[in-house]
């Protein structure tokens, strides 16, 4: 994987990305109680924008940072179960992003990727809850999660698309050192 190698400069960059993800997630938790009709487990996923931008600019190794850092933050604030849910959701979501970018489909943009990765995030969380409760009974909840996941993913996807050109310009600064190659 030549994209986004882990050298000193990149790590600093990714570290900032991770911190940004954490801050956004904190902001989100403050806002969530004020959103009416929000089912448990469904979140706007603001911090996902960071992850999606990294994925869109080809910084695949860097994806590790926001995902892990955010999950560890969750571990410290909300405990082991929430940590595992965040981690599994984050990994599946990031994997989906990587796959979709690799597939290089012209007719799918960040909005579509946002929807898919948000749904994958919810799926990951649901999977962990199966292990914790010892039964798959919660699967009745999937349609609700998919619905909200689609909505949230669409929003974050559009947001990512808007920010993308700016993010790309930032990434250019690291191009020479990281040897990354991506489509502009």
């Amino acid at each position: 994987m030549k994209n986004g190698r882990l050298n000193a400069r990149n790590i600093a960059y990714y570290g900032i990305a991770g911190t940004l993800a954490i801050v956004l997630s904190m902001l989100e938790s403050v806002l969530v109680p004020y959103i009416p009709g929000l089912p448990p487990g469904a979140k706007p996923g603001l911090s996902n924008v960071v992850v999606m931008l990294l994925a869109a600019t080809g910084q695949t190794a860097g994806l590790l940072f926001p995902v892990l850092m955010k999950s560890i933050f969750v571990l410290l604030t909300r405990g082991m179960s929430a940590f595992l849910m965040s981690l599994s959701g984050g990994i599946l979501s990031a994997a989906a992003m990587i796959l979709m970018h690799r597939a290089k489909l012209k007719s799918i943009g960040e909005a579509g990727i946002g929807i898919v990765s948000a749904c994958m995030h919810n799926a990951g969380q649901l999977l962990v809850s199966f292990f914790y409760t010892g039964t798959a009974a919660l699967i009745w909840y999937l349609p609700v999660l998919l619905l909200f996941g689609a909505a949230a993913g669409l929003a974050t996807g559009i947001f990512t698309a808007v920010l993308l050109p700016h993010a790309r310009r930032l990434a250019v600064l690291f191009r020479k050192e990281s040897g990354s190659s991506f489509t502009t």
Partner: peptide, 26 residues
């Protein structure tokens, strides 16, 4: 090689999810 890796990743995700659901089934 890239294609292969992509497919591998996709398949492992699907397997993981199926396993996850079934392990929860009592």
């Amino acid at each position: 090689e890239k294609r292969y890796r992509t497919v591998l990743l996709a398949v492992s995700i699907v397997l993981l999810m199926t396993f996850g659901v079934f392990s929860g089934c009592r």
